[in-house]
Design a protein around this nucleic acid. Structure first.
Lengths: 143, 143
DNA sequence: TACAATTCTATTGTATACAATTTTTTTAAA
DNA sequence: TTTAAAAAAATTGTATACAATAGAATTGTA
């Protein structure tokens, strides 16, 4: 007993999360590439498909990303034609992000392309523990 | 039913892992900063404290990182004086990483500094589900 | 109403990550 | 044993992330 406190890789929940998260992203990436999305821009599209016309900071809160990450990401997505960035008329500090027609259209393609991947991961997700993970992990959002 | 397949942020285990992993790293970072370590170099030190004198590729396998990440990271850690990088005499392709005295000495300081953090996180880890997480997450290492 | 504090986005600087390629060395095969 | 294939590390290019700071706009307050 007490040995659980020792510093080592296997003991670190943090390492498990880190490795796991990267692995998961790598499973998605080749599929997302066909949609010209990275994992981060995919998450951004997910957030926008749920709630369109949202400020940069609100979007960042949803995704746990700050303006230093969001600004260049959104500029790139604008250049790709998925979104528009427009400064609010009422408060010039605020920039609203909106899906373009192309951005909205991507939803259908994404659903289609990801369904196969989701099915194969689904065989994992259907394991008893996966539902548990979905509920446990948010408790660890530490920030 | 069926609605679980819908594309949205809350449904994505991947997003939960991603957010959770980042949050965890941010809890560690301020403490690690006092040791002049980033989270990645901390993981590297953990691996080396467990097994000293190891090749770059073996180290990368342990940490799930490729040479494109390892090489600059290790060069920086060498400059900091934590490790040495020496090409193998038997196979000139291989570079062995070894802890310096300073690198070994860091173990004690790390244990001390992290104990407080680990205690406060420990109250979380002691929850019934934390032990489960430790066992479940490795099953998701997809690469 | 001046002006201090706050808010929001953008910028700068540093540190990861990984795919793809290159270089050097070693191994395997014809 | 020449030559093709493989292996290991390094390099190049692209994409994140986040801390710290800056700059512009807005809000709160004396």
């Amino acid at each position: 007993m007490g040995n659980d406190d020792a510093l080592n890789l296997e003991n670190e929940i943090g390492f498990a999360l880190y490795a796991c998260s990267k692995g998961w992203i790598q499973k998605y990436s080749p599929v997302l590439e066909r949609l010209n999305l990275t994992y981060t821009s995919y998450l951004t599209m997910l957030a926008l498909w749920e709630q369109d016309k949202i400020s940069v900071s609100e979007l960042g809160k949803k995704l746990y990303l700050d303006s230093g990450t969001m600004t260049p990401l959104l500029k790139k997505m604008e250049k790709q034609g998925f979104i528009s960035r427009d400064r609010s008329e009422f408060d010039e500090r605020v920039v609203f992000i909106q899906l373009t027609e192309k951005g909205r259209a991507l939803h259908k393609q994404a659903t289609k392309l990801l369904s196969t991947l989701k099915e194969s991961l689904g065989t994992m997700e259907n394991n008893s523990w996966a539902e548990g993970l979905k509920q446990l992990l948010p408790k660890l959002y530490l920030k």
